[in-house]
């Protein structure tokens, strides 16, 4: 079972997600963005960072990297694909996930732990969690505000998997750090094999780092990769 971790020029969280995947007992391999054949991969992660410097717009150049056609093909074939932070932005920009990420409400970069409430367990990222579970996970982004033209369709299809909340699980105005529509922090696609989120589960992979709440997501993802039949 091998997971491809895609590295664009400017990606910087690739070693961190590899570390978390290691902790979950999964093999992974770094893949340069010029790669065009990922037929061997049973799962793909697009990690955080600043692909191509985030120039023009987050993900705007990365979506044209050679590797993305292959990511799109694997997504269509049902392989689990996870986008974290910049990876989420790239998946949205590529149209693999709906919506877009725009600048935070307060126009400032935000790096701090936030609380997330699990809204749906029907996704590659939340299958091992329980609905209503509250997870403490670091956020680290400038363009983290989720917006979508047809937010109702996303909600109606139960594609919202994570929302920003208070430590007690309540969703309040002040618990939404970046102004995301409906406090959305993570979503899945209709086929439920692609997931993206702005916070970084790999940064909450060990108690010594302040939280290991992210491991339930990493383990969900690894489990979904294990279930892939080739």
């Amino acid at each position: 079972m091998t997971i491809a971790v895609v590295v664009f020029p400017g990606t910087n969280c690739e070693h961190d997600i590899v570390h978390a995947l290691d902790l979950a007992g999964a093999d992974s391999e770094l893949v340069w963005h010029t790669e065009t054949d990922l037929a061997w991969a049973l799962g793909v992660v697009l990690p955080g960072g600043f692909a191509h410097g985030d120039y023009v717009r987050t993900g705007a150049i990365a979506r044209f990297s050679p590797v993305m056609a292959e990511v799109e093909r694997l997504a269509a074939s049902g392989i689990p694909i996870l986008g974290i932070c910049n990876g989420f932005q790239i998946l949205c920009e590529a149209g693999i996930l709906p919506g877009a990420l725009v600048a935070n409400r307060d126009l400032k970069f935000i790096c701090k732990p936030v609380y997330l409430r699990v809204e749906s367990t029907d996704s590659i990222l939340t299958s091992a969690a329980t609905i209503g579970q509250v997870l403490k996970i670091p956020l680290n982004s400038y363009e983290g505000q989720f917006v979508a033209d047809d937010i109702d369709a996303i909600e109606d299809a139960d594609e919202v998997i994570l929302r920003y909340c208070d430590p007690d699980g309540e969703i309040r105005e002040h618990s939404n750090p970046n102004g995301s529509t409906n406090a959305i922090a993570g979503i899945t696609n209709a086929a439920r094999n692609v997931a993206g989120l702005m916070p970084h589960p790999e940064r909450a992979s060990e108690t010594i780092l302040g939280s290991n709440d992210g491991m339930v997501m990493i383990e969900s993802f690894v489990e979904s990769v294990r279930r892939v039949r080739v």
Binding site: D16, A20, P138
Partner: peptide
């Protein structure tokens, strides 16, 4: 400090 990424590299 919340504007600085202070967690990268775990």
């Amino acid at each position: 400090s919340n504007q600085y990424d202070h967690m990268l590299f775990l």
